[in-house]
Design a protein around this nucleic acid. Structure first.
Lengths: 125, 125
DNA sequence: TTGCAATAGATGTATATACATCTATCAGCG
DNA sequence: CGCTGATAGATGTATATACATCTATTGCAA
């Protein structure tokens, strides 16, 4: 339900939740390694490899080899930052609507339950 | 978070949430048409076509042409019913853990918010 | 009765997800 | 140094999801 709701609100923007989440994460943590990003977002590293490939095709992402040459350091391109800014209002709208539907106290308790039950770590915003 | 949590609890069973949900729905509504099933579960009809193809390969599903020959009426095979009974405890465990983590009052309000916000219809346990 | 719009489901194409496994690189010990 | 085990990321394979479009059937109105 949650994923479908966010996707439905984002649909007019042309992005999906995953893509927006990655833009947002990279906007906040420019130069992060792929491994760290996967851990922070709690997504499988192979899923990340493939989603990043998509973003590279779109021209939203660039990457550099790290000091440790096994690592990739990830950055948004100007186009990627533009996408993020363009789509942010859609995401904020979805966020607001869910928060309002649940009420602030319930919202907080749901996040808290997610942490306790599924080990999810809250993300900024 | 919710999808990943249910999937993680179901993982030892070898099924995913989608597959279990379909077994459950067909166990409760034997002979339902594909269209009705898609509407009830609020999943895209093309997604359903492909997930049902998977279940047919596993031997869990059989189907008959309806009176309206455009329609397919869907039934679980004995093997499908067996799978459902086998995996039900995993799903109940996930359900219990989430309910407990949220608390009964919050659980109800989350379901209610889902209905109001995303138009989701509650399904029987 | 026939002709056409509407409906059920399937198919083409594309993104999302994740387990198993592979390659390249690194770190540490002998 | 030079193995050897560990780590970062990529690839093989398989399921999940959904928009656009196609085919087969149906219902209805001229």
């Amino acid at each position: 339900m949650v994923t479908q709701f966010y996707d439905s609100v984002l649909r007019p923007s042309g992005l999906r939740v995953t893509q927006f989440t990655l833009l947002q994460a990279l906007n906040h943590a420019s130069g992060i390694s792929q491994k760290q990003l996967a851990e922070w977002l709690e997504i499988d590293s192979t899923t990340l490899t493939r989603t990043l490939a998509f973003m590279r095709r779109k021209g939203w992402l660039r990457s550099e080899t790290g000091t440790d040459r096994r690592e990739l350091r990830l950055f948004l391109t100007a186009a990627g930052q533009g996408q993020y800014k363009r789509v942010l209002p859609y995401w904020q709208s979805a966020q607001r609507r869910l928060r309002q539907a649940l009420g602030e106290a319930n919202w907080i308790q749901v996040i808290d339950a997610a942490v306790r039950t599924a080990g999810v770590t809250p993300k900024p915003d």
